[in-house]
């Protein structure tokens, strides 16, 4: 089992990155790895509440909300990225904001890192 840190850095609907990263994270758990998710930079826009994409596009916010059900339990957001872009009060309760030092610790503790 590897501890894999998946860093999401892009907005939810500007590309397929968010969907691909979420598929990646869930598959990682299904095949026996420990997956840790970090939202960073413009990736924190994926945490915007009440997203309403048109039909045919999966709701990224809802998919993120379901991560704990798929045993992705460690979900973090870069604190300074959040503060720069939004009211941190809107962050879902299961997302823990991290300082730069805490982020460094997260990177160090991971056996592998993938960035989307």
């Amino acid at each position: 089992m590897k501890r894999i840190l998946v860093i999401l850095t892009t907005p939810p609907y500007g590309s397929g990155d968010a969907q691909d990263a979420l598929d990646f994270a869930v598959a990682g758990v299904n095949f026996g790895h420990d997956i840790v998710v970090l939202f960073e930079g413009d990736g924190v826009w994926q945490l915007t509440p009440e997203q309403a994409p048109p039909k045919g596009i999966k709701n990224v916010g809802k998919r993120i909300k379901s991560l704990p059900l798929f045993d992705v339990e460690e979900i973090y957001a870069c604190k300074s990225s959040v503060v720069t872009r939004m009211d941190s009060a809107v962050l879902p309760a299961f997302v823990t904001p991290l300082t730069e030092a805490e982020k460094a610790g997260l990177l160090e503790a991971a056996s592998m890192v993938v960035r989307f």
Partner: peptide, 10 residues
């Protein structure tokens, strides 16, 4: 698939 990848990753 992602399954083969994550299996090989072990």
């Amino acid at each position: 698939g992602l399954g083969e990848f994550f299996t090989a990753l072990h």
